[in-house]
């Protein structure tokens, strides 16, 4: 087991299997088909992301450097949260980007009962260590345990 400490962007506690993207997560490309066509597992549709393509994202501890691509990204995350198809948590090795931050804030302010903890600044070592399927536990203080 290894522990990593980051900055709490959206507080919360959760434990979930890891899903790791070493490249930036293109939010629109990843989620749009799942949202449009009722895929409750939120299967990643981004052909340019070999780490995630074809894998379910809902309920996973999504570990990534940052999000990239279309500025619909925040509202796509907001919709995923509203439809209960969001990842269990978002864990960024880098400082969070403006689109993911927007999605996290919109969900926190405008939706009720959404629990999607977000932690950023976990460092490159976090992304190098965590692998798909490992159990990730996020604590209130930004501590992330990977085992």
């Amino acid at each position: 087991m290894k522990e990593f400490r980051g900055r709490v962007v959206a507080p919360g506690c959760v434990s979930a299997p890891a899903l790791v993207s070493h490249g930036g997560l293109n939010t629109l490309a990843s989620f749009q088909k799942a949202l449009q066509f009722g895929d409750k597992k939120a299967t990643c549709g981004d052909q340019n992301n070999p780490d995630l393509y074809g894998k379910p994202m809902a309920g996973k501890a999504l570990c990534l450097p940052q999000t990239i691509g279309s500025t619909t990204g925040g509202l796509v995350l907001y919709c995923a949260c509203s439809m209960n198809r969001q990842p269990a948590c978002l864990l960024f090795s880098n400082p969070i980007d403006s689109l993911a931050a927007a999605g996290s804030v919109l969900a926190a302010v405008w939706l009720e009962d959404v629990n999607m903890p977000v932690v950023d600044c976990l460092g490159e070592e976090f992304l190098a260590f965590v692998k798909d399927g490992m159990t990730v536990t996020v604590k209130e203080n930004g501590l992330v345990c990977v085992e």
């Binding site: 279309s70 500025t71 925040g74 403006s98 927007a102």
Partner: peptide, 22 residues
């Protein structure tokens, strides 16, 4: 994204990469 990067870079306006709704 394409309009924001153009406005910042070519026109010299000031804008973050805001998300839809934001």
């Amino acid at each position: 994204s394409s309009a924001v990067v153009y406005a910042n870079s070519v026109l010299g306006a000031r804008c973050n990469r805001n998300s839809g709704i934001m």
